[in-house]
Design a protein around this nucleic acid. Sequence first.
RNA 1: CGGGGCGUAGCGUAGUGGCUAGCGCGCCUGCUUUGGGAGCAGGAGACCGGAGGUUCGAAUCCUCUCGCCCCGACCA
Length: 574
Amino acid sequence: MLRMSTLFLRTLRDDPADAEVASHRLLVRAGYIRRIAAGVYSWLPLGYITFRNIERIVREEMDAAGFQEVHFPALLPREPYEATNRWNEYGPDLFRLQDRKGGDYLLGPTHEEMFTLMVKGEYSSYKDLPLALYQIQTKYRDETRPRSGIIRGREFVMKDSYSFDLTDEGLIESYNKHRAAYIKTFDRLGLKYNIVKAVAGAMGGSGSEEFLAPCETGEDTYVLCEKCGYAANVEAMRTAVLPVDSSKVAPLQEVDTPNTPTIDSLVAVLNERFGGGYTGANTLKNVLLIADGEIISVLVPGDREVDLKRLQANLEGVQELRLFEDADFAKNPGLVKGYVGPQDAQKLGVTVYADPRIGPGTSWVTGANKKDCHALNVVNGRDFEVTNYVDAAEVIKGDACPTCSSPIIIDRAIEIGHIFQLGRKYAQALDLTVLDSDGKSRVVTMGSYGIGVSRAVAAIAEQTHDEIGLCWPAEIAPAHVHIVATGKEDNPFNVALALGEEIEKLGKTVMLDDRRDASPGVKFKDAELIGNPIIVVVGKSLADGNVEVRVRATGDRTEVALDVAAGAIVALLS
RNA sequence: CGGGGCGUAGCGUAGUGGCUAGCGCGCCUGCUUUGGGAGCAGGAGACCGGAGGUUCGAAUCCUCUCGCCCCGACCA
């Protein structure tokens, strides 16, 4: 039983000045966590109990799925990360340190290498596969900007697992097993979430989905179709390419359009000149960028911006991407700022990428590659060629769902889990092979799967809190029942203690506010701030042989006879 | 890394050149109080983030530096 008279806890009446988001604010105020450095937090007793509850649920579900737990050091040598080139690739996000002899070490940001090497060290036959291992470990990433308290820290706890299979089909099976285990886990954690198509990103690999917990303070933006259930990270959202019949479009015509370097100014001139009807959506925006040193042009409708994040995520193999600058225009006189069109791209040495909205046969108004001059009726396939289609335009609420064409909604969320079909990248780099039944050596294919355990504390807090405090699901809360004893006589305190013991015998955990010096108001405020699901008040109503039972989430209050209270409270929890 | 903001007691803050750095919460002692962050009285707690400088005099002005928060860039 957690007794508040001795519990190491000090709640704060005021919000901490350095906390903005609700989870951070409340976790600090309620005495769960304290900041140590930017993105680095300590867990106080209440916080650590909550953290361990989440960890326990994650572990139980991993074990139930048949995955085996191992544990690596957080402190790792350089060599394995050198072999996969991540010592370099990870860049400044990697916490690096040296030992007294000058040897390079790192604090593990993720452990693909170590798992791969561990399996390599023990197994060498196809008969040993499939295999899935996991660990729950503190990870370190020197984020450029840690933020939102515990949501994005530089030190955090993650459950990461890895599957090892001989075949691609086996990988898909392992992936689906993890997916199912994740669904069970997040359901038990009481999180609302969407499973969303993701881009594989720097990890490489093919299939990838994110588990996103919707909440305002989330850092990830995703789209959701409420009709058919399609969900995708904005970066991964696909746009359907619709072929258009362009045979009746008039031939390309160049027109003088002085002082129209922007879409708005162009539209105004067009409407003035041709009697209205033009909008930004009729124009073609040519955004010039430098991708790994080469000039590329990205075509989007004039009424949309290029979403650089989305573009980068969908441009395969491009490491460095930046916008064209004035200096670049100066070096390329054929490209006229404000009047660029795709018509002469090949001649000008520009590779043309187009958002799928710029489909074959579509007709546009765009720059004529001459100052103060635009071109009408510029048709894709007739007047210019697109090298590659790439989803690059910003996604806007109401855009058509790629599967059912209904309008999509856009929402923000915290990424709480990510599952990946990694493939053979790491196994290849570290030479993890097994002998197949035909005696030939084959490279193993891997999946990697993560759950942010410490982040889940914040995500649950974000989704469940209200104006007065935290409000945990029963399995997560520091205690199932929070008993408040009030009054100055001994009796309520003795009754509260006995009731607590009775509830514990029935298998539920109890926090008891047995502080003699705190006023009732303080105890009620603290109980509400701390957020255990059931609050029981032992005090005034004891005169009628009752205690008061409150449900934290709804505020419901009922008087219950003391002799049946324990049973009634336990029943409320199931 | 760019932009913005902020460092004064455990927490929240006032104090823009001049007495002993002020207040609220919290903490300690005593008395009273006990169903919604109690009252009275007394008390402890601050090298004003750090270094250097200007000045008769610096929390306050200047320079440098360290740290923190927010937006963006970045990020399995």
